[in-house]
Write a protein that binds this DNA or RNA. Sequence first.
DNA 1: TTTTTTATTGACCCGTCAATCAACAAAAAA
DNA 2: TTTTTTGTTGATTGACGGGTCAATAAAAAA
Lengths: 196, 196
Amino acid sequence: MPKVGMEPLRRKALIDATISAIGERGSLDVTMSEIAGRAGVSSALAHHYFGAKDELLLATMRHILAELTADTLRALGSAKTSRERVSAVVAVNFSDLQFQPETIAAWLAFYVEAQKSAALRRLLKVYARRLHSNLLSGLTGILPRTEADRVAEATAALIDGLYIRRALKDGVPDAATAIALVEDYLETKLSGRSAQ
Amino acid sequence: MPKVGMEPLRRKALIDATISAIGERGSLDVTMSEIAGRAGVSSALAHHYFGAKDELLLATMRHILAELTADTLRALGSAKTSRERVSAVVAVNFSDLQFQPETIAAWLAFYVEAQKSAALRRLLKVYARRLHSNLLSGLTGILPRTEADRVAEATAALIDGLYIRRALKDGVPDAATAIALVEDYLETKLSGRSAQ
DNA sequence: TTTTTTATTGACCCGTCAATCAACAAAAAA
DNA sequence: TTTTTTGTTGATTGACGGGTCAATAAAAAA
């Protein structure tokens, strides 16, 4: 069966399998065999391509982050006003792709793992900073710098918090409700001010 | 050495050891031996008093929750107006006791574990519901029911989000800043309305 | 004093899992 | 065709960790 040029396909399959495995288990306590099995290969192959388990997890996190980044850039592309930019960033975080039990479970699990892994911690900081600056890029057009900063911080925290509560399946059932909450907050903070 | 009446002391010591171990590791991946060692006993004794590891973790979570509840009741006791009640609930969640790296790490870890353990999930739902109703008890004195409900939901999410961001050690350095953010949100939502 | 209850542990078993390795197969290169 | 490269796995190892158990010791009860 061995065909040539399998490496990229296998890598992708293994990363996808990792996400779905984590999503189902709800934690990073998934075995290499479980992941490999889902990808239709042996655990030895997973080690062959990724080395240690840590690296597979890290690659998976990178993949999730890259997708979020791509989604965000796409959404920002079709936003014209500052206000629209802010809403676009918020919307992306609650899009069907992102606001799904599996993805959320993965985020949560990675947050925990970040306490142990410096590499993972660095990755998550990149995400946090990027979210902040994306929000800020819209907000600075509407609010004074200091105020914009504070609102960006609160919005980011609000988003993270809604993710957690979603994971618990308590309150905040769907994405629409979550977006409404965030937008409601933004509206009260931005009302009166006209965008540039 | 065996003295009588050790059980409650050992239980307490083991739970404390569990919290500090989780706090240090940043996850529930702590061994029974590690915990027992910290408590100054053998792992066999930990099993003797708590049975399986799950039950020790569950007992630990219950303990944390009980402390939070006690703190909250105390704080609510000295609050007179509705507005003060809301602030009191917020303040407790960011008190020195609660808003500490170890405790936060424990919370996070438990959130993840809740995906696997139904018992833990139930506990966390109790917490979520209690937080919501505590906030609501103050808010209903100021806002119409539906609006109060929405604000309570957002505030709870905001608090959870700030916890996560604190765990990442990114942004939101201290409790004061966190409280300021939440209070700022509340102020904008409640401004104009006079409390009862 | 004998007996029972409570406290406690070291040693051990067993399952799980990450990681390794030798071996095999197919394609590509020589 | 032979050789090398690429893909792949089953079997194995070694470590780790949860859980059990028999044994010990002190105190309390009989």
